[in-house]
């Protein structure tokens, strides 16, 4: 696998994360608009299977950065230091909120975690958008992309929940999907020369590529199975855990 193929893989992973985890972020950020506790749990159940299957895409993207483009990663970390801290902190807080909120029946406990989920989901989307902006190299791009990404994942999360509950969303799912992908794709295209410059040697890329290609069928099968769990309307054979 050449550096260009690795670059495409990185793009696919980032776009996949925006699509899958974006739905969870959007649902989490809009949790406050659900009137009752049961309604919140139903919404979280609608996107629940996407959490574990979705966040692995960004972890894998970070792995591609470390393994194939370590010089690009250290450059990005230096330029976007505070944004990265905000990204990982909000990510951890969002996950803690989702996993812990329903573990106790207390109303105070749940409403406190719901607030954490709303704030952390919003900050997570904003930080990811801002990190894309850091790649563009301007504060204005960072601020603009942060706001854009927050708004797009809100629409996207609402579209996924509506699809599973059989209601009508403001924007159709195909449109919101394209919308959350586009900032990632445009940014990677713009950063392409710098990314290729930050790659490791060709032999190392080839060896790493062999392992990833060998595992690819298994990766695809488990991911498709996870999407299959959310492809149908929410019903009695689903799991309410969050």
């Amino acid at each position: 696998m050449t550096a260009a193929v690795w670059g495409v893989l990185l793009t696919v992973l980032l776009a996949g994360w925006a699509l899958l985890d974006g739905a969870v972020q959007g649902t989490g950020a809009a949790l406050g608009s659900a009137p009752t506790g049961a309604e919140r749990r139903v919404r979280l159940a609608a996107v629940g299977p996407l959490l574990l299957a979705g966040e692995v895409w960004l972890v894998a993207a970070a792995g591609v950065l470390v393994g194939a483009f370590p010089h690009a990663e250290s450059a990005l970390a230096a330029a976007g230091y505070p944004v990265l801290v905000a990204l990982v902190a909000s990510w951890a807080a969002r996950d803690a909120g989702l996993w812990l909120r329903s573990r106790r029946a207390s109303a105070v406990w749940r409403s406190a975690w719901d607030r954490v989920i709303v704030v952390a989901s919003t900050v997570l989307s904003a930080a990811f958008g801002a990190l894309l902006g850091v790649v563009w190299g301007s504060v204005w791009a960072a601020a603009g992309l942060a706001v854009t990404f927050v708004l797009l994942v809100r629409l996207h999360g609402a579209a996924v929940v509506a699809r599973r509950l059989g209601t009508t969303a403001r924007a159709p799912l195909w449109l919101t999907s394209v919308a959350v992908l586009s900032p990632v794709l445009v940014t990677v295209v713009a950063a392409w020369p710098a990314l290729m410059h930050g790659a490791v040697s060709v032999s190392a890329l080839a060896a790493l590529g062999g392992i990833v290609l060998a595992a690819l069928p298994a990766l695809v099968v488990v991911q498709v199975a996870a999407w299959w769990l959310v492809a149908r309307p929410l019903g009695r054979r689903d799991v309410v855990f969050f």
Binding site: P49, L52, V59, A68, V239
Partner: peptide, 20 residues
Amino acid sequence: AVETMVAFFLESTLLGLWVF
């Protein structure tokens, strides 16, 4: 990179399938 792209990726997705 192998950890994040293969082992952890599979582990987490499989655990999600087990739960949901």
